[in-house]
Amino acid sequence: MDNSELARAADPRVFVPYLRDNPPRLPTGGHGHGAIETVRTATHRGHEIVVRTTYEIEVDGRPLKGHLNVGNDGSVHYHPLPNYSFDSALDLVRQVIDSFPERFEAGGPHPADATDSGHREAHRGGA
């Protein structure tokens, strides 16, 4: 890696045509279902441990479907809030409501209300 390599990659005459031909996939779809399954594995005294946890989260009766992981220490990480870890899934949902307040206001716009019909087809499974 040197300056000239970087300057080449930072030239719009190079990267714009490249991206036009190779647009990467982005997480535009929901997960499509309400349940989020997480798997933890470990080995203890030669025994294989698998812990599967299924979360079904609702706020005001509406499912919350972002991707979630449980760490070996039991803490919860929610991908749409990538810099947080939580002691519990309840704390996580509290933070989601605090961080996206306008999304939980009665009558506020919800992605499901979006008019773009390409949205469903654009789903590629996300993270």
Binding site: P23, P109, A114
Partner: peptide, 18 residues
């Protein structure tokens, strides 16, 4: 301000609430 000529449509990103 450097417009690339690319749009969110080129990446199939849907528009929020229209």
């Amino acid at each position: 301000q450097e417009d690339t000529g690319l749009t969110t449509g080129d990446f199939r990103i849907p528009g929020f609430a229209g």
